[in-house]
Design a protein around this nucleic acid. Structure first.
Lengths: 203, 203, 203, 203
DNA sequence: AATGAATGAGGATTCATTCAT
DNA sequence: CATGAATGAATCCTCATTCAT
């Protein structure tokens, strides 16, 4: 699909990626408002004006970036469900999540910082779109939970709650990993997270 | 303690609170950068200039606000440990947390949004101070975990991990509660949260 | 004249003086614009509001201050002319000037800094007044010069030029004295100044 | 030297000059503080924002302006000393000074107004730099005086005093020329100034 | 009279966006 | 297409002045 591109198109695409990658770093460091287009341009090694040939405006850069990643994260879920046993799915889901955040820690930072700004009612079309995908992503995890409950693998609790709890644990470990300097590998936490989520803290 | 104030002093204190309260709403809605001093002033029903007789600058408003709340949240923890059985402590901690966030949802939004900006290395003195208190707060929860482990009430896992997991679950429920419109009471989630944290999801 | 004051009036007058004295220091340090009413009030150990019971506004403080001093400086000249020989007059004038500036160095700084702002055409009534007095002061010195020329004591040059030159020398010595820290006495310069003015630099 | 510029660079340079020129007028009229960036921009026929692509801030405009001129004034002195007889040097110095001030009367006004603010101890690096050049300029004049004394052309007085006196006379004539409307040529004063400085006022 | 909190106009500065080259 | 200078709206902050107490 992404084949059959002229050289020109390939360059454009690569440039776009370079800009998004620079933007990701800056947005993660400073947040949407404190980040400046100048800074993004500089980090991307483009002129400020060039950014405007690739993107409509600052917000477009931001949302393009986030939508991309949200989709990738969603794909991750989809590659899972398949034919596996629900329990195995959950284990893989946890590992996949931690891997994804380890490889996309800027994205994680952006999301946790800006999520507030994307509450229902947001007018902007792109933002609504973003919200839709967030929720659809949560639904996917919920689906997994529901399947596991039906199989008798998980307690019969509201799937929504189970999804919230799991995502909460994952996010919390990720946040702390980033905060403390992220030297070690976040994926190594998979087992603790899995154990805590499935078996709880009680002795 | 806070007695023996002249009428004037009482007014000043009340005004200060009013400003902080307005600021809390605005900062929660928009984040530190997108919030404008004008808007805070308007919401507080003061002139722009008045804010500057109460606070040094925008950041001072922000940090005063957050430091206040962090301290209150910390006090909450301290009222706990006492003579209770560790297990009971944890239950109460969960309930107290949810209650606190229910009553301070703006604070919750602020914290989750801006935490990134408070990474170690931050130069500003007040910000360093804030970080110190965040960490000290986490340590308190860890302490509780450790006590429960020693009692044989919790699994013998790194207390730090247990604290991270618990806080993650609480935050995640809070975030979702806020996101979905926060009609019902967040405290009602206490039991689910406790159950999930202690017994895990597995059937 | 300034007798027969009630105690109250005496206090008012003293307060007024105190404010002007504080203002003098601040205006000398920072200039009219950079000086703030707050700072003057603080230095005078009055509340900001109090200043406004003594003076109409910031400019009023400034001009009251300057007019006062200009008048004193003018009086100085008048005490001179009298019955003395012109040459003696000039010597005394020089000494008197240096003494006056030594004792009023803040005033000197203010005048040299703000004189530009008082060009002809200035609308403000008080400022016009100030300009009038400046010029009348120059005229006095010119008068002395003229008398000395008529007596055959000074070269037959335009008295205006002689006055300008003399004042220039005096100001320049004063400025340098202030600039270098004004440790020694400025009056000690009287003889050099007199010699230079009267006999010139040539060997 | 200042060749080999692209057209763009030439435009930039010209714009910079235009801004400095506008600033010179405004600063001369009102002083550093009372001058507004808006006004400078308007006079230069640029937008406010444009000034900030050429200069870091208002102070940078001011100091760039002044440093430029101080250097030019200093160059003037250097072109002098050379092989000439000291007496001739002094005559030329006087004429050159008056010419320079005639052509740079805004600069003269700025300097006399703001010199106070540049006392030793000023923290700012650029301001220190400015002070250094002022003093170095005075030293140059002193040097000339010393040479003339050594030649037996001038009275054996402290060269510093001679320099102060000469500069004082020049400044005073310049100030009066500006004050009275500067219709005639200031350079015409050269002979009076020279005569007064060298031969003094005494008949 | 004295106080100092409140006001709000005004000013420096930043930055997303546009556009001539 | 790319550039980066120019724009001007938006924002933080200051400070002279007023006024209720």
């Amino acid at each position: 699909m992404t084949k059959n591109l002229t050289r020109r198109e390939k360059v454009k695409l690569a440039n776009r990626e370079a800009i998004l990658s620079a933007a990701e770093e800056i947005f993660a460091e400073k947040g949407f408002y404190a980040a400046t287009v100048d800074e993004i341009a500089e980090r991307a090694e483009f002129s400020k004006g060039a950014l405007y040939t690739y993107f409509k405006n600052k917000e477009d850069i931001f949302l393009s970036l986030v939508l991309d990643k949200v989709d990738k994260q969603k794909e991750m879920n989809q590659g899972l469900g398949a034919s596996l046993a629900p329990m195995e799915c959950i284990k893989r889901l946890i590992r996949a999540h931690l891997k994804f955040f380890e490889e996309n820690k800027e994205y994680f930072q952006i999301i946790t910082s800006e999520r507030n700004r994307f509450k229902p009612g947001t007018k902007n079309k792109l933002r609504r779109e973003l919200m839709k995908r967030f929720q659809s992503y949560l639904k996917d995890v919920e689906g997994l939970m529901k399947a596991a409950i039906d199989k008798g693998d998980l307690k019969n609790l509201t799937p929504n709650y189970l999804a919230i709890a799991l995502i909460g644990i994952i996010n919390s470990f990720t946040a702390q990993w980033i905060f403390t300097g992220s030297e070690s590998s976040l994926q190594e936490m998979s087992e603790v997270v899995t154990k805590l989520f499935l078996e709880g803290a009680k002795a």
